[in-house]
């Protein structure tokens, strides 16, 4: 895209994108680290996730302030407007994802006397969700709507894997009542992962709005693709 006539506005837009990516990087790291703490049984890592959540929250406030002043002072239009709107929404999803990672870390710390024995399904789920988060952030960074669509599409598999994990977890609980505490903590961790995936989908949907100007929320994948390719009109 051509440079903005007002150089300072161009700089502000660039700074806004960078801040979002910085926040996204912290969130992705928090999710990875929280799951490492679970799988490697490493309370130090869990504590680090909890301590670092403050940085994510601070970025949320800072980015909100940036978008507020841009709306008031620059009256952005078209692509700039869509970037600012997308940012306002993405920031909330990132902050929530950070909290969910913190929740995973918190659950891990509670497993001290009740270790989670069966972790392979959780590990599979985590890999899928982390990839989903990565796709959403990459799509934002490179303004790549196809990657964003891929991220949305991945949600089906994540949900399926989450359901399978829940069923499996339930069988462990039924087999051995002594596993109930660990099982409930595992269930909470799985739920948090699944919700982090949902937030990644929200982010990806906002990237598509930002890049193409289409609102594909709450429509099926086929309709979304038709909207984006222009085969279908918004009305």
């Amino acid at each position: 895209m051509t440079e903005h006539t007002i150089k300072r506005f161009e700089d502000e837009l660039t700074a806004l994108k960078e801040k979002i990516l910085c926040m996204g990087g912290l969130v992705e790291k928090a999710v990875r680290r929280s799951m490492k703490s679970v799988l490697q049984v490493d309370p130090g890592k869990a504590q680090k996730v909890i301590d670092r959540d403050r940085a994510i929250n601070a970025l949320e406030v800072e980015i909100d302030e940036m978008t507020r002043s841009m709306l008031a002072l620059r009256q952005p239009a078209a692509g700039d407007l869509r970037l600012v709107i997308a940012t306002i929404k993405i920031v909330t999803d990132l902050e929530r994802s950070g909290d969910l990672a913190e929740g995973i870390a918190d659950a891990m710390l509670q497993t001290k006397d009740h270790p989670i024995i069966h972790t392979s399904s959780l590990e599979t789920l985590a890999e899928l969700v982390i990839e989903q988060v990565k796709y959403a952030l990459d799509a934002f960074a490179s303004e790549d709507f196809e990657k964003a669509l891929d991220c949305v599409a991945k949600d089906k598999k994540v949900n399926k894997t989450f359901k399978a994990f829940q069923r499996e977890n339930l069988t462990y609980l039924m087999e051995d009542p002594r596993q109930i505490t660990a099982g409930l903590l595992a269930s909470a961790i799985g739920k948090n992962l699944e919700r982090i995936g949902d937030h990644a989908v929200n982010i990806a949907e906002m990237v598509i709005y930002m890049v193409k100007g289409h609102d594909i929320r709450h429509v099926d994948h086929k309709t979304a693709a038709a909207l984006i390719s222009g085969e279908l009109s918004e009305d």
Binding site: T2, H4, T5, A78, G79, H214
Partner: peptide, 20 residues
């Protein structure tokens, strides 16, 4: 539509102040 998602790049550039 023109002010949120114009179809033409030249419109986009003008609307967002990227003109010339």
């Amino acid at each position: 539509d023109i002010f949120t998602a114009p179809k033409n790049q030249r419109t986009e550039d003008y609307i967002t102040g990227r003109f010339g």
